[in-house]
Simulated assay, not measured.
Amino acid sequence: MEIKIINENKKQFIDLLLLADEQESMIDRYLERGELFALYDNDLKSICVVTEESPDTCELKSIATYEKWQNMGYAGRLIQYISSYYKDKYRTMLVGTGDVPSTLRFYENNGFTLSHRIPDFFTDNYDHLIFEEGVQLVDMVYLKKEL
């Protein structure tokens, strides 16, 4: 297994990025200012993007694994890697997500705790309704992890 930082041609990963954030214009807001990490296990399995939000805080903006490789630990390994990678640079890592129990559980299992929420984030910022596991996403739920 190998994790690479991708500095150029980040849009080549748009298929995976759209699994994590289904509106390309929203991805465009952070992709170029963020660092993109790609996890390979023979071939590409998972990616994530991390941005600096303040001198002591970074944010995991997107994390996605190809569907056939989900639930095999790849996303968790990426979180472990980026947590270690950034521990000497930032104190806190944030992640924002929809209010979906399985997603919240995934982040909690990877060391995140509930932080705050932004009401109506998905309905105010996306040009269409977003559903995950049959639940309409409305509020953005933020979790944090001390590095």
Rank of each mutant, 00 (worst) to 15 (best):
S54C: 05
K4N: 14
G76M: 06
D21R: 00
V141H: 00
F122A: 00
I27F: 01
T57K: 09
I3W: 10
Y40P: 14
Y142Q: 01
Y81K: 09
F121Q: 08
A38F: 15
I6F: 08
F122W: 02
L104T: 15
F13T: 10
S54V: 01
T103R: 09
G34W: 07
C48P: 12
G134K: 07
D15Q: 08
E35D: 13
G111W: 00
E108I: 03
L36E: 07
D56Y: 06
S84T: 10
D120R: 04
G73F: 02
L147I: 08
N42C: 15
L44F: 03
E35N: 11
T92N: 15
K144T: 11
G111R: 00
N110H: 04
E24A: 14
C58S: 15
D139H: 06
V50D: 15
D21C: 00
G73N: 01
S84L: 13
D41L: 15
T57L: 07
Y90W: 03
N109D: 01
Q23D: 03
E8Q: 06
K87E: 07
Y74C: 03
F112E: 02
E146I: 14
L39K: 15
D21V: 01
Y85D: 01
N71F: 15
Y90S: 00
G73C: 06
E24T: 06
L78D: 05
M1I: 14
K87N: 08
E8Y: 05
T92G: 13
I79P: 06
Y107S: 10
I14C: 12
D21N: 01
S25P: 15
E53C: 02
C58I: 08
T103D: 14
Y30H: 06
P55T: 00
D124C: 12
V95T: 11
R77G: 06
A75D: 09
V100N: 13
F112D: 04
I118D: 04
D88K: 08
E146D: 12
L44W: 05
R117G: 08
D56L: 07
K11D: 12
R117P: 04
Y74N: 03
Y40T: 15
V50N: 12
T65C: 06
T65F: 09
T65K: 03
I6G: 07
I6W: 09
M26A: 13
V141S: 00
E2S: 12
D56E: 13
D21H: 00
G96Y: 01
S54Y: 05
V135N: 10
L78T: 05
E32V: 01
G98Y: 04
N110G: 02
R77N: 04
L60P: 14
D127Y: 06
M26C: 12
V138S: 09
K144S: 07
L17S: 02
Y40L: 08
A75W: 03
Y107E: 06
F122V: 00
L147R: 04
P119E: 07
K145P: 02
S25E: 12
V141I: 05
I47G: 07
L36I: 12
L129G: 11
K4G: 09
L143G: 01
R29G: 13
D124S: 10
L114K: 04
Y142H: 02
I79N: 02
A20G: 09
L60V: 13
I79E: 03
F13R: 11
A75L: 07
D127T: 11
K4S: 14
L129K: 15
T97F: 02
E32W: 03
T92S: 12
M72G: 05
D15R: 04
S62L: 10
F13G: 05
A20R: 01
K145G: 02
S25M: 13
